[in-house]
Design a protein around this nucleic acid. Sequence first.
RNA 1: GCGAAAGUGGCGAAACUGGUAGACGCGCGAGACUUAGGAUCUCGUGAGCUCGCUCGUGGGGGUUCGAGUCCCCCCUUUCGCACCA
Length: 759
Amino acid sequence: FTGADIHGRWKRLLGENVFEPIGFDAFGIHSENFALKIGVHPMELIPRSIANFTRQLRRAGAMYDWDHTVDTTSPEYYRWTQWLFLQLYKAGIAEKKEAAVNWCPSCMTVLANEQVIAGACERCGTMVEQRLLSQWFFRISDYAQRLLDNLEWIDWSETTRKAQENWIGRSEGAEIRFDVADHDGVKIPVFTTRPDTIFGATFLVVAPEHPAVAAITSPAQRAAVDAYIERAAGMDLVTRKKTDKEKTGVFSGAYAVNPATGRNIPVWIADYVLMDYGTGAIMAVPGHDERDFEFARKYDLEIVRVVAAGGDVDVSPLEEAFTGDGALVNSGKFDGMSSTEAIRAITGWLAESGAAGPRVNFRLHDWCISRQRYWGPPIPILYCDSCGPVPVPEADLPVVLPFVESYKPDASGVSPLARVESWYRTTCPQCGGTARRETDVSDTFLDSAWYFLRYPSAKRDDVPFDPALTEKWLPVNMYIGGEEHAVLHLLYSRFVTMVLKDLGHVSFEEPFTTFRKHGLLIKDGAKMSKSRGNVIIPDEYLDKWGADTFRTYLMFLGPYQEGGDFRDQGLQGPFGFLNRLWETVMPVGELRDGPPDPDVERKLHQTIRKVTEDIGALRYNTAIAAMMEYLNVVRGGNRAAARSEVEPLVVLVAPFAPHIAEELWEQLGHGGGIFGAPGSSGEGNWPAFDDEKARVSSIEFVVQVNGKVRARLQVAPGVSQEYVHEEGLRDENVARALEGRHVKKVIFVADKLLNIVAS
RNA sequence: GCGAAAGUGGCGAAACUGGUAGACGCGCGAGACUUAGGAUCUCGUGAGCUCGCUCGUGGGGGUUCGAGUCCCCCCUUUCGCACCA
């Protein structure tokens, strides 16, 4: 957070009114698991942790607005998280559905797809299984195209935008509907990005969970199919999704009609086709898809080439799948057409008979927000015996999470709250009959998907966010966060903001106009993380070096946006720098009055320019290096420093080392504080630079012979080619290098170099 | 496999659109002040040698008067995703 604070403090010094809030999002599996591990109830543990974090953040000298903090675990906050759920519910964006979900057998809860890392639970690393549960989902996939489109114009780190783009996973293609032979009315739609290869579709593959399976399976194949499905269902998602696993499948006994060729092709069932992507069924084109090829080889299915590689009309049998583009062959009237042309032409042709249509598919799945755990905001829904699901009236919010002594989850698949009858038994607000509360809580990512809206209105208990305050402060101008939020938090926040815009609650649809990621700290050759245990304890460093040195070092150790290597020894540099700064300015009485020394003044303006540009671009490490250089110039030579030389430096250093800067500022006789009064906007203390004064009177000019440096000349800027050429030839090294050669060419780069090309 | 980023001294790292490689700092060496120094200050510090040059930015090619920077091929590392049809 130090880098964000430096940016905020800098803006304040520029005279801007800066709102820099901080808050605590302590709901969720992570906190709950930790509470279970150390045996302290989260309701006791979380306030303790928040108090400790607050103490550390204050010590580190961040200028947060402590009057506007949020704590997502407090009823005053989650009341509005529940309100948000109700808005989505009323808009039809929240819906309950039965679905195969990712189940972590260790955490005993459902995980969003985004929380499953390579098949394992993001939190505990346990392999995730699939389970069929009734869950609340947000229809984020309805927003996929907008979430993708806006990435074009929001000012975000490129890598983060790319990550979101990949996660949304748009792919363009066609939906082709296959009739099943001898099963009137049964159609199997497939999604494909390669409709041009339809003539090569020699079989169909459907996922084991595909709804058509039961209807089309032939009596003869029934037993084999049932066995296969049972095996697939029992398999955990990891094993199932392993790409290097040998493909397995079973013939359904049914045939589909290829709408292009009119031929009957077998329908197979295989678990390499996933129910949750596309339509859960594919047309297999073994000639031009590696997975289909492998499958066809194994089960001895027909492989037809329909795309010729290269320019030749190649109809040779395939030894491996050819997945590139080429000219169509064995494709009737489309022979000779290029793949790209054929995609449009064939889709159009099939559309005439109603067998196909263009389709865009997204990888993004709906967001499952139900968690069968204790430590989260209860989902504000009641189930009435006669009315069915009923939203809790907004006036009755919050639905307070009760204190439960034993909140440990079990394998039942229901929340620990389902064990608290006194809590979940209630009456229906519509009919007064008996009702039961929803006993699942919501995903922590929902808490953090709207917290930025809450900050300005944190003191308001009548609205989730005040329209005027929201209009004044949002969207967030500068959001700095870790790359770990690239798809989860950032995508959900964008989605929630879009929904709120559509529902008329806010006027903007992107919450963070600028996002910059910060890098990770490396310690002892690995990234610093709690799980590795190679974290540092800030208190120890604050004790030993002080907040100013600690902050400055963190920004100096490497490029902010890439992170860097945290080494204890490295603190010495910034420590020495700040000490020398202190000694140069103090005692103030010995400072010289009057204008800066001309050489120092030039360096000063160069430094102000560099530091200003660097901080704006988050290049903190080079900004600090520039200040060090300047201080070395001020201290160089046998002369007392002038007040006019050091005073601007005190301001430049202030975002990094606010305590020393504030103290020196006061010692220099200024009142009111270096950063100005909080909330004020107007003239800041940041020094202005003068390009004229930064201009150098003499530069080092390089004379090369055949690209090698032979002489360096001190010249005035704007020097002519003739002059440096003449002076260069006078240099003995240049003369020696040119001996016995004749000059072919001379390259002149103004104020930089002269290259004499000779052979 | 796909996507993203990166490989520069003993170390952390600089180098804007191709134009003096190694700024700044750590560490190290020498010296000063010191009873002492893990304090402070000054100077030095990429490698090699015949002391003027030669070689040096993961490896190999190329473009160019000139390449850390651009192009092609390869190697390595990190991160994200992964049977996405």
